[in-house]
Structure formats: C-alpha cells, structure tokens
C-alpha cells in the first residue's frame, strides 16, 4: 500500500476494463484526454474537472533571481506556470483515508537531490510494545 506509482498504463487499463475497447484504443484515449487538457491550458484556458480539481495558468512577472551557489544575480524571464487546486472532494477523500489508516509518507532524499516519497505504515500499538517502543 501507498508506494505504487500509477502510470498511463494503469489508466488505460481502467479504460479497457470500463468499456469494451481494445487496449490500443484505450491507450490512445488516455493520451487524447491528457492532450486535450494540455491544449486548453496552452491556450490559456482554465480546466475544471468536477470532484477532482482545477488547473489554471498563472502569469509570473520577470524578476531577479540569484544563483544559490555563486550568489550571482540572474534575471528570471516572465513565464507562465500551472497551478493545480484539488477539489474539496479530492482533498477530503485523500485526507480521510490516509488519516484513518495512519499511512506515514516519509521524505527521502535521492542521490540526485530532489525529494522522493516513499511510504510505510506506522506499526500498530501491539508491534510497538513488542519492540519496547511505546
């Protein structure tokens, strides 16, 4: 639990099981859904998926940044960034389930630096006692 990575393959498998289409066509449908969302965002449109969340494009002004290593000032050009706002339904579902089962998401630092997530389940009171922890 809680350490699997879902990919396009999983999504197309769900589509395959939901409707009687070929695997190939299911894969294409997943791709075209993602592509339609990306295209709308590229046009500057907001994309709202009810009970999931909304994606919006935000314009960032040009600003002066700094190379953290050298302290050198570098201009950061104005750009557009994507923000995802999860819907309340998604937030509640994620929070309720994980809080209930006390799934612990721990931060691990990978070799290359960026934070990676792995998860483990907090041992029950029983196992903690056995280990003399609690």
């Amino acid at each position: 639990m809680a350490n699997e990575t879902i990919t396009r393959a999983h999504l197309s498998n769900s589509v395959y099981q939901e409707v009687g289409l070929s695997r190939n066509e299911s894969t294409n449908l997943v791709e075209s859904v993602l592509d339609e969302i990306a295209a709308a965002l590229a046009r500057g449109e907001m994309v709202k998926i009810s009970s999931f969340g909304s994606f919006a494009v935000r314009k960032k002004q040009e600003r002066v940044g700094r190379n953290p290593k050298t302290g050198e000032e570098v201009p950061i050009a104005s750009r557009q960034v994507l923000v995802f706002r999860p819907s309340h339904v998604l937030k509640d579902r994620v929070n309720n389930y994980l809080t209930k089962f006390r799934v612990k998401l721990t931060k691990k630092r990978g070799a290359s630096g960026p934070l990676q997530k792995s998860a483990r389940i907090v041992p029950s009171a029983h196992t903690r006692n056995q280990r003399g922890l609690s």
Partner: peptide, 10 residues
C-alpha cells in the same frame, strides 16, 4: 490512487 497515498506519474 491518491487516496491510497500512491503517486500518479504521467
């Protein structure tokens, strides 16, 4: 997937 704490990587 997110409900289980899984990651969705596209």
């Amino acid at each position: 997937a997110l409900e289980r704490g899984d990651r969705v990587e596209l």
